[in-house]
Design a protein around this nucleic acid. Structure first.
Length: 577
DNA sequence: CTAGGGTTAG
């Protein structure tokens, strides 16, 4: 065998580039050249073994006469990257009892493993261990720790670690900003981002990823726009990931055209995520045709669609009611080497169900190769409600309850199906069941931004400082839309109360309050944006259509699933949603 | 006494 510098060669290997066979060959080679003496390759070999097969790493480690901290570290690190990251923590524990104690790096690797495994309690154990070892002042370790806490859902502890740090750098800030954004605390993420800038830090590409993700969730267009200006000034848009979140941010703030502009004018190469983000953006805005078009362009550009691309395109078909296109797309997946997952199934079931093809939808659910999840059954239940199919609704809601759903919405759907068929006894039965089961009701809320301030409303809310003006405005709206033939659609209200009370319950839905506030506090003729955490209600949809016409306003509503753009009495969803 | 640590999109 010709001379090769094994050390140099091995340093270049990644976990993915080596098979177990390769590793064994290297092992054999190293054994002949002497594994007992330390060389960088020994660590690398251990690490690669650990990443590929824990038992093999164990065997190699055993063959080393007296493994030192470096050797152990290599194994802990390798295991952290393996398919079983929890094995890394186990190894860390074994090492704690071995002659060579863990050092700061060992803790770091083991904590990374916890982050991958979302192992909160293991992380807390390592946390107390590292205090015992005296590494608590190591700020790199603190950043890792902060990140693990955030990723495993313990944002309070993440925040605390951050607060107690005596030294921070940009990565520490980034870790917490990203953590808060990904942990559904986008307000706090944005606040921290602003504080960071006040304290004189210069955001880098990682920072803006977290901050923009927060803007997307909030629909905070102004903040998002400012960050985009900063990004361009600092040329951070040379980074694809940054461009991708900008596209996503604009789309989720309602500006699909700006999203498309960024997509078209990128100064770096598009990745598959870029395409998927843009297809999803068009889908969310109900532009199914353009979503499909972009999906096809993507293929022509030589980018092979993956499961997310298909999901995005399917979603576009869903929101636009393109039943045939969606069905065709779904059926073409396999031929393109992409296996449908439960979300794809959910999507076609939704597509067929809403088009009234309930039998076909049910057939797919019953023949799909994986277990349908609750969401899928809920989708089908929604379709049953839309098309008033009582028999199927009963079957499906039984499934939903069996799967442990305890949300108000599912009961209401079934109750509505009965109500639509005047089966009041059954309506009462469902209501009894709701009382007995202590069902969870997800509180609905809506918000709108006026002059850079977010105003939030819940149903029947009287907490806003201008609530009297808001309610007065709603009276006026009511009066004016009635002359256009508006009749309240009270079957969206579940409670067994009188017609007038039902109308009142509807009248003060959070999205109507936000809309009325928008009407009284923004310039006439300017657009109004409303964001709602749940799906928009049918009555509100009808009201907002009329308002857009009578008041000459463009009203953009982002609900849980998509955008509704109301203009001149029509909605971009064409009443299909 | 080798080299090895933290933050990153759909």
């Amino acid at each position: 065998m010709a001379f090769v510098d094994v050390d140099t060669l091995l340093q270049k290997c990644t976990f993915q580039s080596l098979s177990l066979l390769h590793i064994k060959q290297l092992h054999a080679h190293l054994t002949t050249t002497g594994l007992s003496r330390f060389c960088p390759s020994r660590s690398k070999l251990l690490e690669l073994c650990a990443a590929a097969a824990a038992s093999y790493a164990d065997a190699v480690l055993r063959r080393i006469p007296s493994p030192d901290t470096n050797d152990w570290n290599a194994v802990v690190r390798g295991l952290a990257h393996s398919r079983q990251p929890s094995a890394s923590v186990t190894c860390f524990r074994v090492m704690s009892r071995a002659p060579h104690k863990p050092d700061a790096l060992t803790c770091s690797f083991a904590l990374k493993a916890c982050a991958r495994a979302l192992a909160w309690s293991e992380a807390t154990q390592i946390h107390s261990q590292l205090i015992r070892y005296g590494f608590e002042a190591d700020f790199l370790l603190q950043t890792t720790l902060l990140d693990v806490y955030a990723k495993s859902g313990d944002l309070d502890n993440a925040q605390q670690v951050f607060d107690e740090m005596h030294q921070r750098d940009i990565a520490s800030w980034n870790a917490l900003i990203a953590g808060l954004a990904q942990g559904s605390r986008p307000n706090e993420a944005l606040e921290l981002f602003k504080r960071m800038k006040l304290e004189g830090w210069k955001p880098n590409e990682v920072t803006v990823l977290g901050a923009l993700s927060a803007c997307s969730q909030l629909g905070a267009a102004r903040d998002g726009e400012k960050i985009w200006v900063y990004i361009r000034g600092e040329k951070l848009d040379l980074n694809v990931q940054v461009c991708n979140v900008v596209i996503d941010m604009y789309a989720k703030c309602g500006f699909v055209d700006k999203a498309y502009w960024v997509f078209e004018n990128m100064s770096c190469c598009k990745s598959i995520v870029t395409w998927n983000t843009m297809i999803m953006a068009l889908a969310m805005h109900g532009d199914g045709y353009r979503a499909i078009e972009l999906f096809e362009q993507m293929g022509q550009a030589g980018v092979c669609p993956d499961d997310v691309s298909y999901l995005a395109a399917l979603c576009g078909c869903n929101h636009a009611g393109l039943v045939e296109d969606g069905f065709r797309l779904f059926n073409s997946m396999e031929g393109c080497g992409v296996r449908a997952n439960v979300k794809h199934y959910g999507s076609v079931v939704d597509l067929l169900g809403r088009a009234g093809r309930l039998e076909e939808a049910f057939g797919i659910v019953n023949s799909m190769p994986m277990v349908p999840d609750v969401v899928l059954w809920q989708t089908l239940l929604g379709a049953c409600k839309t098309h008033g199919n009582v028999d199927l609704a009963e079957q499906v809601s039984r499934k939903v309850v069996e799967m442990g759903s305890n949300t108000c919405g599912d009961f209401i759907l079934l109750s509505n199906v009965y109500a639509a068929n005047q089966r009041w006894d059954d309506v009462g039965r469902v209501r009894e069941a709701m009382k007995n089961r202590d069902v969870k009701k997800i509180p609905g809320f809506s918000y709108t931004e006026v002059g850079g301030v977010i105003h939030t409303f819940v149903n029947g809310d009287q907490n806003h400082s201008s609530w009297r003006d808001i309610y007065r405005k709603l009276e006026e709206v009511r009066f004016r839309i009635e002359s256009y033939g508006y009749v309240p659609e009270t079957n969206y209200v579940l409670h067994d109360i009188g017609q007038e009370e039902k109308e009142n319950a509807l009248s003060y839905h959070s999205e109507k309050l936000a809309l009325a506030f928008g009407l009284i506090s923004t310039r006439e003729g300017s657009p109004i944006q409303v964001i709602k955490n749940l799906r928009i209600c049918g009555d509100c949809h009808a009201v907002i259509k009329l308002v857009s016409k009578i008041y000459g306003r463009e009203i953009i509503v982002r609900d849980r699933a998509r955008f509704h753009r109301f203009k001149e009495g029509l909605c971009s969803c064409r009443d299909y949603w």
